[in-house]
Simulated scan of single mutants.
Amino acid sequence: MRMKPLFIAASLTLAAALVGCTSDGTFKMFSSDYGARADAGYQLPAVPIYKVDKKYHRQVVRYDTDEKPGTIIVDTANKFLYFVLPEGKAVRYGIGVGREGFEWRGTARVAMKREWPTWTPPSAMIGRQPELAKWRGGMPPGLTNPLGARALYLFNKGGDSGYRLHGTPEWFSIGKAMSSGCIRLMNQDIIDLYDRADTGAKVIVL
């Protein structure tokens, strides 16, 4: 007996639900995880996540790679960061990347992790923006600090690369090229990544 198209469609929908994966390869969305929260003595404000394109919301997706779980892969062209999970999955985060002239590619490792880090602008940045000279000795942690709630410090064979994976109070910059080369995530996302990533983790920037 020939099955009706409606029956076939219903069967496919049920099958997708049973394996927990939608037709676009998403296993789980975390759109409700961007509310206000207390964190290490700071009151982190909510992100108006409805204003952020849904593709940049944190989600578990299908992701095939030969890299081992725990590896971080940064897709600068599509503004995504992937934290590799077992079984062909990854946590995908929306990111902001370096503006034109500040892009970079390569492989590094997470050498240090810091909660509510101090931000010290590089001398080259102070040269471009003299008003930052007041922070030459470091800008204290806080809700307006450019590094946000967490920072992962990237080192390569030459030592400190100068680049970071970090949070940002500027949630509206996610999906855009606005930084001086660092990879920025919404604060709620960098907290999640910070808790998942180990010191020494491999980071690949495509």
Rank of each mutant, 00 (worst) to 15 (best):
T65W: 09
T71H: 08
S179F: 10
S173V: 09
L12G: 09
A201S: 14
T76F: 07
A40K: 11
C182D: 07
G35A: 09
S32Q: 13
Y50Q: 13
N78Y: 13
L44I: 15
T168N: 08
T199N: 02
M178D: 13
A197C: 03
A151D: 03
L85M: 13
P48W: 01
G70Q: 04
G127W: 08
G159Q: 02
R164T: 03
P117L: 01
S31D: 14
A151H: 07
F80S: 14
I95A: 07
E115K: 11
G96D: 08
L6F: 02
V205C: 05
T199L: 04
W119N: 07
A38F: 06
R99F: 00
F7M: 12
L147A: 06
I191Q: 07
P130M: 00
N145V: 11
S11H: 07
S11R: 04
T22H: 00
N145L: 13
S11C: 09
V61W: 02
L206C: 11
W104V: 03
M112P: 00
L132T: 08
D33Y: 12
G70R: 08
A17G: 11
P169K: 10
T26V: 15
L147T: 07
P141D: 05
P121V: 01
L206P: 15
E131V: 10
T120K: 03
A36F: 04
S179K: 10
R164F: 08
V110S: 02
L165R: 06
W116I: 09
G101S: 12
L85H: 08
Y50P: 02
A77T: 14
A151I: 09
Y153M: 09
A133G: 00
L165H: 06
E67S: 14
A16Q: 14
M178I: 12
Y56H: 10
S23T: 14
V47H: 04
S23K: 04
A111R: 12
P169W: 05
Y93I: 10
R37P: 01
Y56W: 06
A38C: 08
L147P: 10
P130K: 02
I204Y: 02
D53C: 03
I191Y: 02
L12W: 11
R164L: 09
Y63P: 00
A108G: 00
K113F: 11
Y42R: 14
L147Y: 11
L147M: 15
Y50T: 10
P45G: 05
D39Q: 12
G158D: 07
F102H: 13
